[in-house]
Amino acid sequence: MKDMTAPPPVTETQVIRVVKAMRRDRRAQWGPVVLGTAGVLAFLLVWQLYSQFGPISDEFLPYPAQVLSQFFANFAYASFWASVGATLWAWMLGLAISSIAGLVVGVLIGSSRFLRKATFTVLEFLRPIPSVALIPIAALAFGPQLGAELLVIVYGCFFVVLIQTLYGVADVDKVAYETTLTMGMTWLQRARYLVLPTLLPYFITGVRLSATIALILGISAELIIGTDGLGQSVAQAQLNGAPVAMYALIITAGVLGIVINLGARAAERKVLFWHESIRAEVPA
């Protein structure tokens, strides 16, 4: 009987396949980085070519080099940072107010079946109203002030947080709830050990979604009403006939968007991590 324990002699095909597999592994490590950078460079190249040879004059579509250098040059101007700061400040305030309001109202409504049913139609009507529809009203009521921008941001984000909070409250495990009743927990204890931990992931998701929405609402308000911020700077640049500045500000807004997005996701992960380890301590 042939000895089955020794491996059969290695053939050339096998060697080739092994080498290919190893190359595939290395490719998977570096591929995304290399190709990703290549993609961005390709985009810049197409931009450059289109701007140089395309139908749009390079006055209206400046070269990437011009825009990028303006983008970096902006960092030296105090007015630039004031603008960014104004947008961020309104964003932060708006997000905070709408999150807290959404959480409180959400918990109140969510905890009561009567309230949930009674408020359903009103909420379902108010929710789809695009917050930007309030821009003219905000403009008339507040003028080009922070309050106008906050009105728009808060109205839009409030409902997002509210809906998520309602989902969260609805998700509270019924059996666990009844257990807390038999244990004679106070409302406060129940909130701490049962409701809030269940609610937390949903609430954080709501805040993360709102973070992006708040930015676009804020900039839209600044664009139309003229409140201080990036939107207003772009409108101003348009009036001054400075396309390069406009493009540079668009890139700035994009960078801001990415920072906010990454920051929101990081915060979400941190809070949920904490939440999971807290969860382990909740009595079954």
Binding site: P8, V18, A21, D25
Partner: peptide
């Protein structure tokens, strides 16, 4: 016939199926 599979990961080669 003589079917074999060896996986190559970061940890080295794993011979799943010899022959």
């Amino acid at each position: 016939e003589n079917l074999s599979k060896t996986y190559h990961g970061r940890a080295g080669a794993v011979e799943a199926v010899r022959s």
